[in-house]
């Protein structure tokens, strides 16, 4: 398989599409041209930078540098999730909850895949590890975000019904069962949709990229299947970890509901 290398000229031609969009916005006073151009510029700069950083990491092939890159990616993902919740926990707890859920589950799944299914040599080779961690983080980030948003929302709104169960002598897991199962279901629905629609409605991104880069369709499909399994595993684990971390933070050692630890924004 010979990847097609894009020339600067071909990128320049397609960038014309952005310019046409911006021009339309200017003519019709849609007022999106500024945001559009800034976002496009950011995208180009960010991706080229990442390209250079990845090339450097691939050449060095140092496990510690790879781990450092993975940690930076995981912190960015935790920050994004933490910053976009309707309810939040004050202090460091917001980011500790999201960070542990996203980081731990992505890392476990990535190491599992690298040591069993993919097996590059060495197993931590940056060329395989970093893209895999990236795609896992991106997906787990969404799952954790949906799970926590749903969980905090339910706890914030339905305090009376949760406390009713506690007052009758149920433990925290029983009292919060409705809230946590709803949160985990909410987190997994998009993944289930993507799996059901895969190949029929859309070609998944990884497979599209590999087909465009010249890979055999069957190999690309198998690769995509493997990745979907890993993503589902990561999302499940991430949603569970996030909800259980939140349960422990929103209750105390006497199993009281501590809704006071949740601030509405």
């Amino acid at each position: 398989m010979k990847p097609i290398d894009l020339t600067p000229a071909s990128l320049a031609i397609t960038s014309g599409l952005i310019l046409i969009c911006a021009l339309l916005s200017l003519l019709l006073s849609l007022r999106v041209h500024r945001a559009l151009l800034i976002a496009a510029l950011r995208m180009v700069v960010q991706l080229m930078l990442v390209g250079f950083v990845l090339r450097l990491l691939f050449e060095r092939s140092n496990p510690w540098l790879t781990l450092l890159a993975a940690l930076v990616m995981a912190s960015a993902a935790s920050y994004e999730v933490g910053a976009r919740q309707d309810y939040r926990m004050p202090g460091p707890w917001q980011y500790l909850t999201t960070g542990s859920a996203i980081g731990i589950s992505s890392m476990i799944i990535a190491v599992l895949a690298l040591t069993t299914a993919l097996r590059p040599t060495p197993w931590y080779a940056a060329r395989e590890a970093l893209p895999l961690i990236g795609i896992l983080l991106g997906n787990v980030m969404n799952a954790v975000s949906l799970a926590l948003n749903s969980f905090y929302g339910t706890v914030g709104r339905e305090r009376a019904s949760i406390e009713a169960r506690l007052a009758l002598g149920e433990g925290r897991f029983v009292a919060l069962h409705a809230a946590s199962s709803r949160a985990i279901r909410t987190a997994l629905i998009p993944t289930i949709n993507v799996m059901s629609a895969a190949g029929i409605i859309t070609l998944p991104g990884i497979m599209t990229g590999q087909l465009l880069a010249g890979m055999d369709p069957i190999s690309a499909a198998k690769y995509q299947i493997l990745l979907m399994f890993l993503i589902v595993g990561g999302n499940c684990l991430g949603a569970f970890t996030a909800v259980y971390a939140a349960i422990f933070r929103l209750t105390d050692q006497r199993e009281r509901l501590r809704a006071d630890r949740l601030k509405s924004r």
């Binding site: 305090r159 406390e163 007052a167 409705a178």
Partner: peptide, 11 residues
């Protein structure tokens, strides 16, 4: 020692 609030919640 069971508490029954004035406005009970229902789950």
């Amino acid at each position: 020692v069971m508490y029954n609030p004035a406005e009970p919640g229902w789950w």
